[in-house]
C-alpha cells in the first residue's frame, strides 16, 4: 500500500481529552507491569525455595522501599485492571458514546484512587 495521504490526526498538535489520558495511562501501566513481572517472579521463586528464603522474602517485603515498590506495582495493576474492565463494558455496547466514554474514563480514575488507597492500607 503506497500511502502518501496526509495524516490529520497528529496527536502532538491537538489538545487531548480525558479519554486519551486514560488510554495512554492504560498503555503506560501495561508496559510498566511487564517490567514488574520480573520482580514478582523473583519474589515467588525465593518464597517457594525454603523456609529460610521465605523468611528472607518476608523481611525484604517489610522494608519501606519494597513496600513503596509493591504499592506502585499494585497501583499500576489496579489502574490497568479497571481500564481493562472499562473495555469489557464498552465491548458489551455500554458507554460507547462520547459522553459515555468520558464518564467511563472518570469512573476508572475514581475507582483507581479508591483501589490504590485500599492497597496502601493493605501494604502497611
Amino acid at each position: 500500500m503506497t500511502d502518501k495521504r496526509p495524516v490529520n490526526l497528529d496527536i502532538g498538535t491537538i489538545k487531548l481529552p480525558i479519554t486519551a489520558y486514560v488510554s495512554i495511562l492504560h498503555r503506560a501501566s501495561g508496559v510498566a507491569l511487564i517490567g514488574a513481572i520480573a520482580i514478582l517472579l523473583g519474589l515467588l521463586s525465593y518464597s517457594l525455595k525454603s523456609a529460610e528464603d521465605f523468611a528472607a522474602v518476608q523481611a525484604c517485603l517489610s522494608s519501606v522501599p519494597m513496600k513503596l515498590l509493591m504499592w506502585a506495582v499494585l497501583a499500576a495493576f489496579i489502574y490497568h485492571l479497571l481500564a481493562g474492565i472499562k473495555h469489557l463494558v464498552m465491548d458489551m455496547g455500554i458507554g460507547e458514546t462520547l459522553e459515555g466514554g468520558k464518564t467511563g474514563a472518570v469512573l476508572v480514575l475514581v475507582f483507581t484512587v479508591i483501589g490504590v488507597a485500599l492497597a496502601g492500607v493493605w501494604v502497611w
Binding site: 518464597s47 517457594l48 525454603s50 521465605f54
Partner: peptide
C-alpha cells in the same frame, strides 16, 4: 488477606 500471619508451609502447600 485471609492468611494474615503466613508461614512457609502454608504457602508451599498452596502452590
Amino acid at each position: 488477606v485471609t492468611h494474615e500471619s503466613l508461614d512457609y508451609s502454608t504457602w508451599q502447600t498452596l502452590h
